[in-house]
Nucleic acid binder design. Structure first.
Length: 398
DNA sequence: AGTCCACAGGAAGGGCAGGCGA
DNA sequence: TCGCCTGCCCTTCCTGTGGACT
């Protein structure tokens, strides 16, 4: 295939834009975190007692997506672990993201995950709850230590499992003889604390730190700092950083979004063998990120959800929005054509609500008086993405 | 003021699969 | 192998809801 060789040669000959790709990735922890000095100091002060064998207060960290909550929490605990090496106090941090499927979406999995991180080995299902709690207790008490649990997206854990597990974890401190457990709960849902049982609320919310969104200027500085390391030799068209940070600032000052925009824009330019990142690459990046987010979400859906989405798209063809009843009717038809066992109305209602979580649709419950109450659903994707989604669904159902 | 529609959404429980210990 | 425990997906049953209609 001469064309392919041409592509490879072009790639080899082109000067790479990235000197270090990982700098712009989400998992990268920078040496300095600009504009979060107060939060770092605050969290540091709260956790410092761990260095002298005390039990730090439990903390709640609030803030919108991409405001540096996770980054700061990880950074402060890493620094704390470093500092603990000079004292004789043993310190262990476990980071758990409750949004990740199958890592901590149930009480059992949360504990199993922590035990694994502490060096234990428990099956991911099968043991009775009291057994997993006693194993957890054993591992924590194995040596005198302070265990810091960073529970990211803690609201999603509570929504799925209730607050019982948090109650048990906070209560455990009373039974532990040698060790201590400190919980850092991270959430972007500011109203979340109100939904907790008062006992859990008071023991968990001993301290709280609120992360305010970055403004466009602060985002620019963050991007510049990273861009200088990520592509020191490549030039950017004037205004690229400003454009990335401006777009991200519109979306509640999300630094993650800003970094993504810059990274994807650079990738687009690099792939084309262009030596300079252009402003137009940022626009393309914006579109690509949106498309990828939706198409990945659609591909990930189980078959029944895909069938629901397909029916929803059929029902909404030529219409602005549709109702649950319309979708269900199309869905039952679809199932009989494709020989799929149809689920009940109740279940479909839940699946539609799940699709909304992925940002594929948006819906609102409305009352039409005598004509009942229903959910009015509209697709929240543009025509171009719609076509791509339809292709994916077509491939999936043949 | 009362009725009624077409659902929303909570609660309970069934059935299944994965895993453990005897 | 069997009984037991778990999570997960799903059904069934139920109550609640808001506004148009009577």
């Amino acid at each position: 295939m001469p064309e392919l060789q041409q592509i490879f040669n072009q790639f080899i000959e082109s000067k790479p834009i990235f000197a270090n790709r990982s700098i712009l990735s989400l998992s990268f922890t920078p040496i300095t975190i600009p504009h979060r000095e107060n939060e770092i100091e605050g969290l540091g002060r709260i956790l410092a007692p761990a260095l002298k064998g005390g039990k730090p207060s439990n903390v709640f960290v609030y803030g919108k997506t991409g405001t540096g909550k996770t980054l700061v929490s990880k950074y402060v605990t890493e620094e704390l672990e470093k500092a603990s090496k000079t004292t004789n106090q043993k310190l262990k941090t476990v980071y758990i993201n409750c949004k990740l499927r199958h890592s901590a979406d149930t009480e059992y999995r949360l504990l199993a995950y922590i035990i694994k991180e502490l060096g234990g080995d428990v099956p991911f299902t099968g043991l009775p709850t009291d057994k997993i709690f006693s194993t957890f207790y054993e591992f924590v008490e194995r040596e005198s230590q302070c265990l810091i649990l960073i529970i990211d997206e803690i609201d999603s854990l509570i929504k799925k499992t209730g607050d019982g597990v948090l109650y048990s974890l906070t209560r455990m401190n009373q039974d532990l003889k040698k060790s201590k457990i400190c919980i850092i709960g991270i959430t972007n849902d500011l109203s979340f604390i109100e939904t907790l049982d008062p006992r859990v609320r008071s023991s968990l919310n001993e301290e709280e730190i609120v992360f305010s969104p970055y403004n466009a200027f602060q985002l620019q500085e963050i991007l510049r700092q990273r861009a200088n390391i990520a592509f020191p030799n490549s030039s950017m068209e004037a205004g690229v950083i400003e454009k990335c940070s401006g777009l991200a600032a519109q979306e509640h000052g999300d630094a993650r979004r800003a970094l993504d925009l810059l990274r994807v824009a650079a990738e687009i330019a690099e792939r084309r063998g262009e030596p300079v990142i252009k402003i137009s690459n940022v626009d393309e990046a914006q579109e690509k990120i949106d498309t990828d987010r939706v198409t990945e979400a659609v591909k990930m859906q189980p078959r029944q959800s895909q069938a629901v989405l397909n029916s929803l798209m059929e029902a909404s063809a030529g219409k602005k929005d549709v109702e649950t009843g319309d979708v269900f009717e199309k869905y039952t038809n679809f199932c009989s054509i494709h020989h799929i066992k149809p689920l009940t109305h109740r279940r479909i209602s839940d699946l539609i609500a799940e699709l909304e979580l992925f940002g594929i649709i948006s819906s609102k419950v409305v009352s039409k008086g005598r004509y009942g109450r229903t959910r009015v659903i509209s697709l929240s994707i543009n025509d171009e993405i719609k076509v791509k989604v339809q292709t994916i669904l077509k491939e999936s159902f043949g």
